[in-house]
Amino acid sequence: EPLWIRPDAPSRCTWQLGRPASESPHHHTAPAKSPKILPDILKKIGDTPMVRINKIGKKFGLKCELLAKCEFFNAGGSVKDRISLRMIEDAERDGTLKPGDTIIEPTSGNTGIGLALAAAVRGYRCIIVMPEKMSSEKVDVLRALGAEIVRTPTNARFDSPESHVGVAWRLKNEIPNSHILDQYRNASNPLAHYDTTADEILQQCDGKLDMLVASVGTGGTITGIARKLKEKCPGCRIIGVDPEGSILAEPEELNQTEQTTYEVEGIGYDFIPTVLDRTVVDKWFKSNDEEAFTFARMLIAQEGLLCGGSAGSTVAVAVKAAQELQEGQRCVVILPDSVRNYMTKFLSDRWMLQKGFLKEEDLTEKKPWWWHLRVQELGLSAPLTVLPTITCGHTIEILREKGFDQAPVVDEAGVILGMVTLGNMLSSLLAGKVQPSDQVGKVIYKQFKQIRLTDTLGRLSHILEMDHFALVVHEQIQYHSTGKSSQRQMVFGVVTAIDLLNFVAAQERDQK
């Protein structure tokens, strides 16, 4: 057995438009009618409502009807409940999964919650491996369901041993009777949507819809739904939504950006999952974080739909894509998950301010006199920076000697690579993860907040409520011999709460 199987392995699926269902090699399930009293909570997966979006479509000038398939009504709160249950049931049916076995899954959280929910009911041990950027709410729900959680670096490539995929496979090879159901490759993922989600949409719309818009992560949702719609409703256009920084969209030119990270969760990847059939997507749109969270908040405030950030991405694209539809036509959007997962993220004004998705003037509360002053007023001194090749031991000596707790790590040209902190280095040394002679590049981390000289002290204040420091950066445009230009970030300084307090105190003292 291989040590790991690539999540982007070539698909062996034989589905073709027009091929009889009787030739399918898979076990198919028909939607079942729910009894009045459910035998367990797993029976509350599927049969989610279709809700008309009344205000947002009109606000953006849509002539067509805009409908939302509300997947956050599933038992675990997301569309991923469907595939989690289906993968477990299919693994039980073919004898792969037996009582007492362990389920391991690399996930952005929602599939993990679905699997942990099913594992709690069915009696399996469950280990979820997820990147650090995923919300604390997801972690809390997983723990409450009895799952064990392993976190991995957000910026690790999918084929790196440190990625959530790599760590999951390492655990599988170490733990007896453990299984990775593997949402990236498992046919049960798109089949769950082909058999149930798509049929529900067709039934709820009486077979009449002209466009379907869905955000894409593993691709199982859009693949399964689109294949069924292509068979039953061939005139329906399928629109895929991919965040900026991901590479799922086609044509490839759409993916060209210097951005590699994004805040919206559960969609987009740096590889093409095996289950994603991009041939059934008629057109791709890219979405960005700001519009995703703005539209998610709009869905909550104006439509009462308590959905997550990827739902915002989907609707932001839908109001663009559906401009081509006329009166009497219908566009369906998939709202994948609930706001429950993001209470401390985009639902929080403070978080939105820190990330730059909300401006101070958007909030009406009274601010102190210094709130709208610029960061450049602080008069920061030149920063202490270190090269990635310097040793951890030497870096600790320098920081202690100069009285700093942290320093930016830059390359020879001064471009920011990340940050090192005294606390992080000492804990890594004590844990045996690094040696004093190791290069400081081994303990770089990139989960820090950046701020510009033109940003306000109010925004800085919000950042420092949650973080010990902020890195002050400025952009530099560099022209190359080819005539092309590129933008790079340079370090201007490091600012802490002490710097802000000293500035405010000094100004008030001078005024007296």
Rank of each mutant, 00 (worst) to 15 (best):
I238W: 00
I238D: 00
I238S: 02
I239W: 04
I239C: 02
V241P: 03
D242F: 00
E244S: 09
E244R: 03
G245T: 04
S246F: 01
I247V: 15
A249D: 00
E250Q: 15
E253N: 14
E253K: 12
E253S: 10
E253C: 06
L254I: 03
N255F: 07
N255W: 06
Q256K: 12
Q256W: 14
Q256N: 13
T257S: 15
E258H: 14
E258V: 11
T261E: 11
T261I: 06
Y262W: 06
V264Q: 11
V264P: 02
G266I: 00
G266P: 00
G266N: 02
I267Q: 04
I267F: 01
G268P: 00
Y269L: 01
Y269V: 01
D270S: 05
F271E: 01
I272C: 11
I272Q: 06
I272E: 06
P273M: 06
P273A: 08
T274H: 04
T274Y: 00
L276D: 01
L276Q: 02
D277G: 10
D277W: 00
T279H: 13
V281F: 09
V281H: 00
D282R: 13
D282Q: 08
D282F: 15
K286T: 00
K286W: 00
S287H: 11
N288W: 13
D289E: 05
E290L: 13
A292K: 06
A292H: 05
A292P: 03
A292L: 05
A292T: 13
F293V: 04
T294Q: 11
T294D: 04
F295E: 10
A296W: 00
A296R: 00
R297D: 00
M298H: 09
I300L: 06
I300M: 11
A301N: 12
A301L: 14
A301F: 15
A301T: 09
Q302R: 12
Q302F: 10
E303T: 13
G304N: 03
L306W: 01
C307I: 07
G309M: 01
S310D: 05
S310K: 03
S310N: 06
S310I: 00
A311C: 06
S313H: 04
T314F: 02
V315G: 08
A316L: 14
A316M: 02
A316P: 14
V317P: 08
A318S: 14
V319G: 04
V319E: 08
V319Q: 08
A321E: 12
A321S: 04
Q323Y: 11
Q323M: 13
E324R: 03
E324M: 13
L325N: 01
L325F: 11
Q326H: 12
E327P: 10
E327K: 12
G328A: 04
G328Y: 06
G328V: 12
G328M: 07
Q329P: 03
Q329R: 12
Q329F: 08
Q329A: 14
R330S: 09
R330E: 09
C331R: 02
C331Y: 00
C331H: 00
V332I: 11
D337Y: 03
S338R: 05
S338F: 04
S338I: 04
V339G: 09
R340H: 04
Y342R: 01
M343A: 03
M343N: 05
T344F: 01
T344M: 06
K345I: 05
K345S: 04
K345N: 03
F346H: 03
F346M: 12
L347Y: 08
L347P: 03
S348I: 05
D349W: 00
R350H: 12
R350C: 07
K355E: 14
K355P: 01
K355N: 12
F357G: 01
F357D: 02
L358N: 10
L358K: 11
L358A: 10
E360V: 12
E360I: 13
E360K: 15
E361P: 10
E361T: 15
E361W: 14
D362H: 11
L363V: 11
E365L: 13
E365T: 13
E365G: 14
K366V: 14
K366G: 09
K367S: 08
K367D: 03
K367P: 11
P368W: 08
P368Q: 07
W369Q: 05
W369L: 08
W370M: 05
W370C: 05
W371M: 09
W371D: 09
W371R: 12
W371K: 11
H372W: 15
H372M: 04
H372G: 14
L373F: 12
R374F: 12
R374V: 08
V375H: 05
V375C: 09
E377G: 10
L378N: 01
L378P: 05
G379T: 10
G379R: 10
S381C: 13
A382Q: 14
P383S: 14
L384N: 09
L384T: 10
T385F: 08
V386G: 05
V386A: 12
L387M: 14
L387G: 12
T389R: 13
T389W: 06
C392E: 09
C392Y: 14
G393M: 14
G393L: 14
H394K: 10
H394W: 10
I396S: 13
E401L: 03
E401C: 15
E401W: 02
F404W: 11
F404P: 03
F404Y: 11
D405R: 09
Q406M: 01
A407L: 13
A407I: 13
A407W: 01
P408E: 00
P408V: 05
P408I: 04
V409L: 04
V409H: 00
D411A: 14
E412P: 13
E412Y: 10
A413T: 15
A413K: 12
G414A: 02
G414M: 01
V415W: 14
I416K: 02
L417D: 09
L417F: 15
M419S: 14
M419A: 15
M419D: 12
M419L: 15
T421N: 02
T421E: 08
L422T: 08
G423N: 11
N424G: 14
N424K: 13
N424T: 04
M425Y: 09
S428M: 05
S428Q: 12
L429Y: 10
L429K: 08
L430R: 14
A431D: 15
A431L: 10
G432A: 14
G432V: 12
K433T: 10
K433N: 15
V434M: 15
V434T: 11
V434A: 12
V434E: 09
P436V: 15
S437E: 15
D438K: 11
D438Q: 09
Q439G: 09
Q439Y: 15
G441A: 15
K442N: 15
V443K: 09
I444M: 13
I444P: 12
K446V: 15
F448G: 10
K449Y: 14
K449E: 14
K449N: 12
K449P: 05
Q450E: 15
I451N: 12
I451Y: 08
R452G: 12
L453I: 14
T454E: 11
D455N: 07
D455I: 15
D455K: 04
D455A: 14
T456Y: 11
T456R: 10
L457N: 00
R459H: 12
R459G: 10
L460C: 08
H462A: 14
H462L: 14
I463F: 14
E465I: 02
E465K: 12
M466A: 10
D467L: 08
D467E: 15
D467I: 02
D467F: 15
H468Q: 12
V472D: 03
V473K: 11
V473I: 03
E475W: 12
Q476W: 01
Q476F: 14
Q476E: 13
Q476C: 08
I477H: 10
I477Y: 08
Y479A: 14
H480E: 09
H480C: 13
H480S: 11
S481V: 12
T482H: 03
G483I: 07
K484G: 11
K484H: 09
S485L: 11
S486V: 10
S486D: 15
Q487C: 13
R488V: 13
Q489T: 12
Q489H: 15
V491I: 14
F492R: 15
G493V: 11
V494M: 15
V495T: 14
T496C: 07
T496H: 06
T496Q: 13
A497Y: 09
I498F: 13
D499N: 04
D499T: 05
L500N: 00
L501N: 07
L501A: 05
F503Y: 07
F503K: 02
A505D: 11
A505T: 13
A506S: 13
A506Y: 04
Q507M: 15
E508V: 13
E508T: 02
E508G: 14
E508D: 15
R509H: 13
Q511D: 10
K512D: 10
